[in-house]
Design a protein around this nucleic acid. Structure first.
Lengths: 202, 202
DNA sequence: GTCTATATGGCGATAGAC
DNA sequence: GTCTATCGCCATATAGAC
C-alpha cells in the first residue's frame, strides 16, 4: 500500500478531487479519473471498490478543508474586528485557491442533505462552536443590535457567493479573469469596514 | 400541438423543471421526467428531440425568472432605501418559493460557463443596466464610500446564499424546517437596516 | 499491485404500430 | 400524437493473467 514513491492511493485521490470538484458526482466518469491519475480504471476499483466510496472520501476531505479553515479564523480568541479581518482575508484567499470546493459542496449537499450529518462527525469541530465564539467576541465588543447568527451568515455569504457565482458576475460586470481577481482583492480590503459599519451604532 | 386541455408540451416542461432543478443535467433521467409528466418516454423526444434541447428550455426559463424578478426590484426608480427594502423582501420571497433555481443555475453555470452569454440574449435586460440603476440611486442618496458593484454583490450574496446553503445552515444552527423559515422571515426585516448602516457614514 | 478483457445494466434515442 | 419494443452505446464493476 505504501511502496510507490507517490503512493497510488494518494494519486487517485488527488485526481478524483480534481474531477469531482468540477463535475460533481453524476458528471464524473471513473475513466476520466483514471486518465487524470495516469493509471488504469480497474485500479480505482481495487483501491476504493465503488465510485460512491471514492466520492465519499473526496467529499469528506472537501468538507473538512472548508470547515477547519473556517475554524482557524472564526474560532480564534481575537477581538471582533481582527477576527472579521482575518476571516475575510484568509478565508477568501483560501476559497480563491480552491474555488471549486464551495460550489461542489453546496451542490452535492442539496442533492443529498442527509449526508451532512454523517460528514460532520468527521470534522473535529462542532458547528455550533463557531457561532458561540463569534457571539462571545460580539458581546466583548458590545455589539447588541445584531443576531450573531445573522452576522455569521452575512459574512459567510459575502465571502463564498462571489466565488461560487464568479462566472456569472464576470459576465454581468464585463470583467476579464484578471479584472475579476483584482476586484476581489479590493473587496478583501473593504469588506471588513463594510461589516463593522453595519453592526456598530451611529 | 394545442389540442389537449393542459397541452402536453407544457406538462413536459413543468415536469422537466421539477427534476432538472433538483438533480441537474447529469443527475436527471429522461424516464423520470416522463413519469413525473405521466406520459411515455418517447413523447419527450417527439417534442424536444434531445435531452439537451429540453434542458436548454428549462435553463433558459430559470435564468429568465431569476433575472426578470431581480430587474423588477433593482431596476425600479425608487430611492435607494426603498429599493433595497423591496429587493430584499420580494426577491428573497421569490427565491424561497423557487428554492432550487439559484443552486441549479450556479451549479450548471460553473460546468458550462460559455452558456451564460447565449442565455443572456434571451433575457430582455442588459446585465449592466441593473448595476447602473443601483449606481444612480446611490448617487442620489449621496452614498460615495461604497462601490455600487460591491453593494450589488453584497446584497445579492446575502439574499441568495442563505437559500442555496439552507441544508447546511439548518444543521449548523440546529434549525427545524419551520425554525429556519422563521429565521429567514426575521432576516427580511433586519437586512435592509444592516445594509443601510453599512453604507451610510457615521 | 497493475494490467487487459469482458460482463452487466442502464440510458438516450429511434422505429414502427395504432 | 401517443404508445411498445428495441437498438446501440457507454459506464460501473469484475475476472483473471501477469
Amino acid at each position: 500500500m505504501v511502496n510507490t514513491p507517490h503512493c497510488t492511493e494518494e494519486k487517485i485521490l488527488e485526481a478524483a478531487k480534481k474531477i469531482f470538484h468540477r463535475k460533481g458526482y453524476d458528471g464524473t466518469r471513473m475513466q476520466e479519473i483514471a486518465d487524470e491519475a495516469g493509471i488504469n480504471k480497474a485500479l480505482l476499483h481495487y483501491y476504493f471498490r465503488t465510485k460512491e466510496n471514492l466520492f465519499n472520501a473526496v467529499f469528506q476531505d472537501a468538507f473538512k478543508d472548508i470547515f477547519s479553515r473556517l475554524f482557524l479564523t472564526v474560532g480564534s480568541d481575537d477581538p471582533l474586528e481582527e477576527k472579521l479581518g482575518k476571516m475575510i482575508n484568509e478565508y477568501i484567499g483560501f476559497l480563491q485557491k480552491n474555488s471549486f470546493i464551495p460550489g461542489f459542496i453546496l451542490s452535492e449537499i442539496n442533492q443529498n442533505p442527509d449526508k451532512i450529518i454523517d460528514v460532520f462527525h468527521s470534522v473535529p469541530v462542532q458547528p455550533l462552536f463557531l457561532y458561540e465564539k463569534l457571539r462571545d467576541s460580539m458581546r466583548d465588543a458590545r455589539i447588541e443590535n445584531v443576531d450573531p447568527r445573522d452576522l455569521f451568515i452575512n459574512v459567510l455569504s459575502m465571502c463564498i457567493f462571489p466565488v461560487v457565482a464568479k462566472p456569472l458576475l464576470k459576465v454581468i460586470f464585463n470583467f476579464s479573469e484578471k479584472e475579476y481577481d483584482e476586484f476581489i482583492e479590493k473587496r478583501k480590503k473593504e469588506l471588513p469596514e463594510f461589516i463593522m459599519n453595519a453592526i456598530t451604532k451611529k
